[in-house]
Design a protein around this nucleic acid. Structure first.
Lengths: 335, 335
DNA sequence: ACTTTTTACGAAAACGATTTAGTAAAGGCT
DNA sequence: AGCCTTTACTAAATCGTTTTCGTAAAAAGT
């Protein structure tokens, strides 16, 4: 069916070793022969068999990115980080493959690794359990976690600086003149949540503002979770003049709820999101937000996986990348 | 490093042919031997080498889905169709792999196919050119186009019923009592655009309503394209009482613009979107929309690719799947 | 007791590439 | 001429499976 190295060899009356060497730039091939081989390969549409090459060389030049597509907003991160990841992979002469994982087959990731289908793995934040990590470590299989800080020193990860993002966002609101700044948390994400909450609290403290527990409410990424939090804030005797939501999708909810209640944004209340997703452009006014450096994360995570592939015994690396405050229309000084 | 069939054979003092047969359910293996092999394979953590197996068997049991991640809203479709696609692939004992394509390397898809990395391809609507299709046909490589109707009878595709969606959406608005229904088009998507426009026009005609060219405006998936269209509609002597947008993201824009102008939704003007993306939940009120059957599309497209892999010489298939009208809060009878 | 069939296994080839080890032929040197 | 080096190639092993063919031993049939 498809054309192999032997087909080229026969056609040129050469041995397949010579053809292989010509294609792979070995020096013990005459210029003339190399030229003929190259030309014929081109003409016959030769493409080396990935299976044969990988079997012989023991590597695939592929990195696997595993995603649980049942987690909805995953795709937002995906579209943000993939361009950087793909470009970096290309420059390292590797391919990035996205594997889907389901709850049906928890062993899928390990199977793929052990079957030698990829040389390294990017684990997307919440998409794994402890046993997977332990198994990868035991196998000495190169992997890097993206989006979650793991305290295990054997584990490499790349995360955005949640703490700084939260701190800077709060600081920005304080600089605008706000003192009653509400904050929504996301309790199920322990590490990220703690970092963000602490950033908020520290920014208040450093500005000499006492924090008010009434201004802190939990939200979840389910519909209308932000609505309830907003209504709670509005019912306070002294409502906030700014709301800093844990996540852009929650902020969308906050903004819609405020609209509905006749509250003007940003004149009456400022709203700020977190993550820098496209949803920030869907609100009126567009949303001020703390953006994750998704392209940088994609780039870095591929670089780190590649390093681990090249040198599996090196120390694990922990990267915390700076976030960016994106000022749009939903924030302004208080009345 | 990793454990091979030969390791198991040595450990049990068997030949590797016997081990292979035991693992693959051949009948000329005694029950006792099979049991021992299975157990040892389990104990040693054996996982067959994908490369070796694929080299020998000539197939990979993988389907590739190619995406150009630089196209923004692709991920919305992705998250919608992937669960169905993955589940179907699983039931067919195949894996779905997502490959990224970039403008850097237009030959990437063909290389992957010719390298034998996958057995079949899902082509995502706009992510290919004519030459790619021609090359795949020439190679007799199994592929199915998703989301775009190709008039070439050699090409299999799976598309949502754009025409019916547009017709039914318009019909619904008419049944609510609207007669002045604005419609936005998306000129750069020829086939889908024509189908949708025709559905709108036919629904009007069938209801005995003359269409008004002033109520048809082009939009694009760039920021604020929907804003301009909306402002144009509002300036008309006799403005529409309903706006049917070509795409949910445009409808978000329309809704925000109407809010800004003080127009109430749905009391003053009804708004309807198309596609059924998550964006429909980000507006207040939530958006009535014509949803693409993304899960069904995912399922069908994998089924079709699989059929073509099993029987490459069968006739190409064309599937048009029914859309679904999802009624939420942005539509109501006119005043 | 003899042939025939069945059972359970092994030897070896094959898939397509890479790579090591070897070798004719040509050229250079004394 | 005789020896050494370089050049340009080939043979063959190898990666880990699958699969065809062959064959002892056991079981069954006469």
């Amino acid at each position: 069916m498809s054309v192999s190295i032997t087909d080229i060899a026969k056609h040129l009356k050469l041995s397949n070793s010579t053809v292989s060497k010509a294609l792979n730039g070995y020096s013990d091939v005459s210029d003339q022969t190399r030229e003929r081989v190259m030309q014929t390969a081109q003409d016959m549409g030769y493409q080396p068999s990935a299976a044969a090459r990988s079997l012989r060389r023991g590597r695939t030049d592929k990195i696997g990115l595993f995603l649980n597509t049942s987690i909805e907003y995953v795709v937002d991160y995906l579209s943000g980080m993939i361009p950087g990841a793909v470009m970096t992979a290309q420059s390292l002469e590797m391919n990035l493959l996205i594997h889907t994982i389901t709850d049906n087959d928890p062993q899928h990731l390990l199977k793929v690794c052990r079957a030698g289908e990829i040389d390294g793995v990017v684990l997307f934040s919440t998409h794994y359990d402890e046993r997977t990590i332990e198994a990868l470590i035991a196998d000495k299989f190169p992997f890097v976690v993206m989006g979650r800080a793991i305290s295990d020193p054997r584990v490499s990860y790349v995360v955005p600086d949640y703490y700084a993002g939260s701190y800077e966002g709060t600081q920005y609101l304080i600089e605008l003149g706000h003192t009653r700044i509400a904050f929504t948390t996301r309790p199920e994400l322990t590490t990220a949540n703690e970092a963000r909450l602490q950033g908020y609290l520290d920014a208040l403290t450093d500005a000499g503002i006492a924090h008010d527990d009434d201004l802190i409410a939990p939200t979840y990424l389910i519909e209308d979770s932000g609505t309830r939090a907003t209504e709670t804030f509005l019912r306070l005797q002294q409502p906030p003049t700014a709301i800093f939501a844990f996540h852009d999708l929650v902020a969308v909810n906050v903004i819609n709820t405020l609209h509905k209640q006749g509250v003007r944004i940003p004149e009456d209340i400022s709203v700020m999101g977190f993550d820098g997703l496209r949803a920030g452009f869907m609100t009126m006014p567009h949303m001020t937000t703390v953006a994750q450096p998704l392209a940088d994360i994609g780039e870095r995570v591929i670089k780190r996986v590649h390093e681990r592939i090249e040198n599996p015994d090196a120390e694990a690396t922990q990267d915390t990348l700076p976030v960016e405050l994106i000022i749009r229309g939903s924030t302004a000084p208080p009345k």
